[in-house]
Simulated assay, not measured.
Amino acid sequence: MQNKQNQNKEEFIRYKDSLSFAAYTAYFFTILSIIYKVFVNSNFSSYLFEIILIIVMTLSIFTHRIMNKVYNLPVKIFGKRKLDFSKQGLKSRLIHYFKDTIVFSILYFSIVHVFLKKQYLFAQVTENVILQISLELLFTFFIVFMTDFVWFETNVSLYEKEKRKRNS
């Protein structure tokens, strides 16, 4: 009887994993579709459905994670960081966010300008090309850093509260 229950649990886990993989694959291809349509056709209505779909998928993922208390904690390339809830731990995570943001901003900027040959990411602010590129990099850096910081620190704080609740 116990063997049958374990087999059912394993099958359920595999089934759940396959559904998750399908959902993340659809999410990824929908984002690619939006990116393609943005650069090929600048008409907002042509990719409005995909944007709504991404928002609905994102909300459903977040709702599921909140309901099941699954936290997205900051990780290193080779695995999870040891979470330290002290000021030193926050400093370590800030350095991690900073490095992550630099890499992402440079890659994003390079892809948009070099491969997609987009002249400006945002509105043209100045005629000086170097100043325009610097402003775009700084703006991208700021948005990504703030998003990383708010998202991961919220998750770290929720994880810490949950951990304290379990230990008490």
Rank of each mutant, 00 (worst) to 15 (best):
S18D: 13
I111Y: 04
F21L: 14
Q2F: 09
I143L: 03
L90K: 06
I66E: 10
Y15T: 13
N155Q: 14
N72R: 14
Q7H: 12
L121T: 01
G79Q: 03
F98H: 08
L48W: 14
K163I: 01
D100S: 09
I95D: 06
Q132R: 01
I61R: 14
K80Y: 06
Y27V: 15
F152S: 00
F145R: 00
S157Q: 04
D100G: 13
M146I: 04
D100N: 06
F139W: 14
Y71K: 12
E10M: 05
S110Y: 09
E11F: 04
T154S: 06
S33I: 08
L131T: 01
Y97C: 04
V70C: 02
K16N: 13
K117P: 07
Y47T: 03
F29D: 01
A26V: 11
I66N: 15
L158W: 01
I95C: 10
Y36L: 06
Q2Y: 10
E127V: 09
F62L: 08
S45Y: 15
E160T: 00
L135W: 01
K76E: 05
S157P: 04
L59C: 03
S134P: 08
F78H: 05
K9D: 11
K4D: 10
Y159V: 10
Y97D: 12
A23E: 02
G89K: 02
Q119V: 04
K163H: 01
N3A: 12
Y24G: 12
Y97H: 02
V125Y: 10
A123F: 07
A23L: 08
Y71T: 06
Y15W: 07
Y24N: 08
F115R: 02
L158D: 02
I102L: 11
S92I: 00
S33F: 07
I51M: 11
L90P: 00
V103T: 11
R164Q: 11
S168N: 14
L131F: 06
R93T: 14
K4M: 11
T63K: 13
F29T: 01
K99E: 08
M146C: 15
E162C: 03
N155H: 09
T140A: 12
T63E: 06
I130R: 09
F29L: 03
F141S: 00
N41R: 09
V38G: 00
K69C: 03
E11I: 14
P74A: 04
L90V: 04
I66A: 14
F142A: 00
Y27H: 10
N167E: 15
